[in-house]
Design a binder for these strands. Structure first.
Lengths: 337, 337
DNA sequence: CGTAGGTGCTGAACCGGATAAGTACCGAGA
DNA sequence: TCTCGGTACTTATCCGGTTCAGCACCTACG
């Protein structure tokens, strides 16, 4: 029960391997009658091209790589990656491209994986996520010559094609909205400080607060976990100059912060307004439902995949600024009491 | 700047391609001195094996497939899959196996993907998840002859190697605990009724309740979303014979149910005890923190990957009953008021 | 001293396709 | 009638490895 090859088809059709190859690939060089006969036989005996054989002739691997460098636990915590992956998938599967996924421990291992995949002809390109400030991966993949799309701001992407959203605008919209409600003391519970998008949001937050003449606008950095989100919230709410509004960098921390506020007998939104970055069912389910910055994460992934496929096709891929996160107001924001 | 091949190494070392192949693969047939020289050259010029060429000689694809048949949105909602994937990854990456992932729309597309991957020699095996009752995929992959491990109860796995946990025992432990606390009216908010593990939990729930002589133990089926979880809870809490405890099939629904209870001015745990299936940071973050059935999902994935790699190696892989979910009590369960 | 056996290597075939080069055949135009 | 040109193929080569058969050469043993 060996897998049928074009040699089998050739034998049955009474033609040469070459003719079968032309016929199956829609190339000129065979008559329509012969082509139809060959296709019929191929279909009948269940022939499938062997990608290995094709790859040997310099063909595409028809797969793109994604190495995720996050502790396994965090992956489960944040819906972000699954949503991103489903968006990437949507684009890839339409072109019959597969996604080669590997979770790695650190950036060194990540680069090792990319080097191997690229060196072994396993992937045609890759998507780089979670850019750091001065990320060493950028020059390294540039040197490899592998088509790569970066999910992140162009300022950190070097010569690689970036796909990003304007986080600064989202920060501005949020702060301006809170100020319009009457808030003067706004805090930000941020994610990992070494991530470049954290730095961008931090700077935008500081700039907007300063521009609006707000007093103290503290920023607390965390590791995105509910535990640290709760701790940061507790610290902020215990300070003498208690903020009347907190903007969290993800939904998990926002929910944790909400619980802390309620634990401290503060009413949300009367005593404290809460805004979360990234919507999730969770945000709609807690009481009060959270005002959030909504992003279409699957679209984000889809756009990155599109750009990557274009690059792989040899098309000059332009940077893409995706839609900025939109503020969706719910019950967790109101004028301060 | 072509990629170096063994021919390049052979030329530099002044030996034949065959000798290089033996040297690089640790096979006998070359002297240690020659082997060392060849390895040094290979290392120096940065040679990497071309998997395509290896695969052409019948070698492994060194990848396993996972096609997930869930709407993109649900993937983001449930941490389960990311945790599962990181567990699978942990095992695979240790053996330099990659995971080929594709999100598909329905079971037919899923089977199409498996057929293609297997037919094209892209994967050496696959992991089947989300088994249904009388799942048509089981006989289909059995016929394909592809090594497959099933995540689910043996009763639904046919001749495929199953990896599962004893959900019935977990259900029993939970109900017995609630009864010991003094509860007599316990309800279950379940997931999709067509999934085989839902059926197994349903049956166990019914059996245990009947065995303990409990009155009415209603089961409500949902689609795992917070919305349906909230609706199911509202319905249960509005009935004349209001349950004093509810066991939810995932954490999202449990949190939604908790909010509904609080919305209805019921105190948790005094008026209503809540138990969630699967722990997550979310469960620890809400007030009160939820009593949960804890599973080590990454371990679950790792075991499945282990079994699959064994199958691929031609080793007879035995079914594996994984550790049953453990009840972790927190503030959401107490004797009824 | 002849030879059996092992070591260390070479040369060539092979995997399953893609593709360039070559060839037989047919019809049309000069 | 001969040539030209296109069609419809065939043949051969290549991709980058693996693997088998074969062949020197050295050693040990009777």
């Amino acid at each position: 029960m060996r897998r049928p090859t074009i040699a089998d088809i050739a034998r049955q059709a009474g033609v040469s391997k070459g003719a079968v190859s032309y016929a199956l690939n829609g190339q000129p060089g065979v008559s329509e009658a012969t082509r139809a006969r060959i296709l019929a036989i191929a279909n009948e005996i269940g022939w499938r091209p062997n990608i290995a054989a094709r790859a040997l002739n310099g063909a595409r691997a028809h797969a793109v790589g994604l190495a995720l460098c996050r502790p396994a636990r965090f992956l489960g915590v944040e819906p972000f990656f699954m949503e991103l992956i489903s968006g990437i998938e949507a684009e890839l599967s339409a072109r019959s491209y597969a996604l080669l996924l590997q979770v790695v421990g650190d950036h060194e291992a990540e680069m090792g994986v990319y080097r191997r995949w690229w060196g072994e002809g396993r992937v045609d390109g890759a998507i780089l996520v979670d850019l750091h400030l001065d990320d060493p991966r950028v020059p390294q993949v540039e040197e490899m010559g592998m088509p790569v799309v970066v999910l992140g701001h162009p300022s950190a992407a070097g010569s690689l094609v970036p796909v990003w959203a304007d986080d600064s605008a989202a920060v501005r919209e949020t702060v301006e909205y809170l100020v319009a409600l009457g808030h003067r003391r706004i805090a930000r519970v941020a994610g990992l400080p070494r991530l470049s998008h954290t730095a961008i949001r931090d700077r935008a937050f500081g700039d907007v607060c300063a521009g609006l003449g707000l007093d103290a606008c503290p920023i607390v950095h965390t590791d995105y976990t509910g535990e640290e989100g709760a701790r940061a919230t507790r610290r902020l709410l215990s300070s003498p100059e208690r903020p009347t509004a907190i903007v969290f960098d993800n939904d998990i921390m926002a929910v944790a912060g909400l619980s802390v506020a309620q634990e401290m007998r503060l009413d949300v939104p009367a005593d404290l307004s809460v805004v979360a970055w990234d919507d999730s069912p969770l945000c709609q389910v807690v009481r009060p439902p959270l005002t959030v910055l909504t992003r279409d994460i699957p679209a984000y992934g889809a756009h990155a995949a599109q750009r990557l496929l274009a690059l792989i096709d040899g098309v000059e891929a332009s940077p893409l600024e995706d839609e900025a996160p939109r503020l969706t107001t719910r019950g967790s924001t109101a004028p301060p009491a």
